[in-house]
Design a protein around this nucleic acid. Structure first.
Length: 570
RNA sequence: CGGGGCGUAGCGCAGUCCGGUAAGCGCGCACGGUUCGGGACCGUGAGGUCGGAGGUUCAAAUCCUCUCGCCCCGACCA
């Protein structure tokens, strides 16, 4: 491709609305342009990278016998109603109506559609197991699109689905896909880590996420020396006990005018935050629930939903809080609210003489003791675990890092086949539900992840495996110098003939502009052709990532570049 | 949705508090010329419903009301 004719619009300055490295660079290097919040066009450079990643994904999945298909973006509401997700998926499910008012979903994921195919087409255990996948544009009406392509409302995802006669077969495929993902991310030259994950709206029994390490990542991962690694939503751990031994005192009300937060109350009463116990009102599947936890800790809503067996859980609006506690927001407590379902965190168990909300305006209660002043059916684990907490396996203090979740694999079991009545006949002629797995991989997100790990102050430095071009020829002063122009054209044609994907910078711009742009767009191998070198009979080859330079005789530049590119192809 | 911020030329911004000079600056773009190995220089020029609607006023980018959009922090997830 000739740069003078290509749509590669670069910018000198950082875009004002971008925060993260990858978002800034994707905009500056002309990979993408925003249409509206969370919706992007891919320009030639971005589209080329996306396709290269797609092809890696294809190659690796095809190699283990997965079959590529393409399902519709649009699916009818009735299908989603079969599994209950028309309701459960919530506002994130992008809904549209046709001219007759019939409702459809723009697919955020395709369990329903693929299960529909399976129940119609697969009748016998002899046809199992099998795995299909597609690479497609997905739609999720995200609460908050962010970081460009990292959290978009329209994005490219590879989603695969496997069907099995039993759990053993599922385990096998799950393991195989897990290994395939490792190979895919290895080939993209990413530093990543698989971690235990929560199952969220997709559901199922077990799940792992592949996290690409990045300080700008949205997800926090909790890790332990012993090998344990999980997302912060999922992480299990032990919260250190800080309570000294104390005799229970007499419960008493204390006036705390206007003190709504833990910090305010702790400061006012001159006590440590852990001596307070906070009570947060949630609405779980439309029923109000109290979550009670030590004052210096946060509730993990994922865990709370698990304990409650609830599908949808959200912080209660003020009106509900006031109705439940009989007090303004900030003064709820477990004492005297036995009529509301309460979930008490394990961190509360060792505490004595705690301070809780008084369920009355401007009032807290001190010297409260569980068992005596409010009843606890059982202590549950609903706490958010973080860096420094003890590992549930080995007891060591855990660490944390941030990452971008590029893929997630789920063991779905029979969640979808049961609700959609998708069955096959086994050897005994008995109908059994498919055991399923599903495996997502964010392709567009992976583009951003690669940039996060492969860039410097000057711009992107693509790994050869996903680079939009393999080589860039920079022709200096090509407008005036016939020698340069001819040499550049010749090398360009030669490299094309040798199968090297090459971009020729034949723009009439100054050397500085071309070099800056070259660094920005990050093509791995750069060949500089100028009169100065040509007079010496050489061209300069420079590697973007290492900055390593070499001079090659101009006559065999083509062969030399091919050898270097081959070396980086891996 | 809660909290914070921002909409002025393709991009990055000033001007808004305190209404009034001809809507400005840098980059980019077009044309002419000089340059030519790390974002060159000179000259000329094009490009704006100041996000939108309504209002106040002799006068609105600037004040008021409503509205739309965008970004950041939190809840969601590939």
């Amino acid at each position: 491709m000739r740069w003078s004719k290509a749509l590669i619009p670069t910018h000198k300055e950082d875009p004002s609305h971008a925060e993260t490295t990858s978002h800034k660079l994707m905009l500056r290097a002309g990979l993408i342009r925003k249409l509206t919040s969370g919706v992007y066009s891919y320009l030639p450079l971005g589209w080329r990278v996306l396709k290269r990643i797609e092809n890696i994904v294809r190659e690796e999945l095809d190699a283990v016998g997965c079959q590529e298909i393409l399902m519709p973006v649009i699916s009818p509401a009735e299908l989603w109603e079969e599994t209950g997700r028309w309701g459960v998926y919530g506002k994130e499910l992008w809904r549209v109506k046709d001219r007759n008012g019939r409702e459809f979903a723009l697919g955020p994921t395709h369990e329903e559609v693929v299960t529909d195919i399976a129940r119609n087409e697969i009748n016998s255990y002899k046809q199992l197991p099998f795995t299909v996948y597609q690479i497609q544009t997905k739609f999720r009406d995200e609460i908050r699109p962010r970081f460009g392509v990292v959290r978009a409302r329209e994005f490219t995802m590879k989603d695969a689905y496997s069907f099995h006669r039993d759990e053993e077969s599922l385990d096998e495929t799950y393991r195989a896909i897990y290994d395939v993902y490792s190979r895919i991310f290895d080939r993209c030259d990413l530093v990543y880590r698989p971690v235990e994950a929560a199952t969220g709206a997709i559901g199922g029994s077990s799940s792992h996420e592949f996290m690409v390490l990045s300080d700008t990542g949205e997800s926090e991962v909790i890790v332990c020396e012993c090998g344990y690694a999980a997302t912060s939503e999922q992480a299990e751990g032990v919260i250190a006990d800080v309570m000294p031994v104390e005799e229970p005192g007499a419960m008493e009300e204390v006036a705390t005018p206007g003190m709504k937060t833990i910090e305010e109350v702790a400061g006012f009463l001159k006590i440590d935050p852990w001596r307070l116990v906070k009570t947060i009102v949630y609405v779980a599947d439309e029923e109000p629930v109290l979550a009670v936890i030590r004052g210096d800790r946060e509730v993990n809503e994922e865990k709370l939903a698990g304990v409650l067996g609830a599908d949808i859980i959200e912080a209660a609006p003020p009106a509900v809080i006031e109705k439940v506690s009989g007090a303004p927001v900030g003064f709820a407590g477990p004492v005297g609210l036995a009529n509301v379902r309460q979930v008490i965190d394990r961190s509360v168990e060792p505490l004595r003489n705690i301070v809780v909300g008084g369920n009355k305006a401007d009032t807290h209660i001190r010297n409260v003791n569980h068992g005596r002043d409010f009843t606890v059916a059982s202590f549950e684990d609903i706490a958010q675990i973080g860096k420094g907490d003890a590992c549930a396996n080995c007891g060591k203090a855990m660490d944390s890092f941030r990452g971008i979740e590029v893929s997630q694999v789920f063991k779905l079991g029979t969640k979808y086949s049961d609700s959609m009545n998708a069955t096959f006949l086994d050897e005994n002629g008995k109908a059994k539900p498919f055991v399923m797995g599903c495996y997502g991989l964010g392709v567009s997100r992976t583009v951003a992840a690669v940039i996060e790990q492969h860039s410097d102050d000057d711009g992107i430095a693509w790994p050869m495996s996903v680079a939009p071009f393999e080589a860039l020829i920079v022709a200096l002063n090509n407008l005036k110098s016939d020698a340069v122009r001819e040499a550049a054209e010749k090398l360009y044609e030669e490299l094309k003939g040798l199968g090297v994907d090459t971009l020729l910078d034949d723009r009439p711009d100054s050397a500085g502009v071309k070099f800056k742009d070259a660094d920005l767009i990050g093509i791995p191998v750069r060949v500089t052709i100028g009169d100065r070198g040509l007079d010496k009979g050489i061209m300069e080859v420079r590697l973007r990532k290492s900055g390593e330079k070499s001079e090659v005789p101009k006559e065999n530049a083509g062969a030399e570049v091919l050898a270097i590119v081959n070396g980086l192809r891996g």
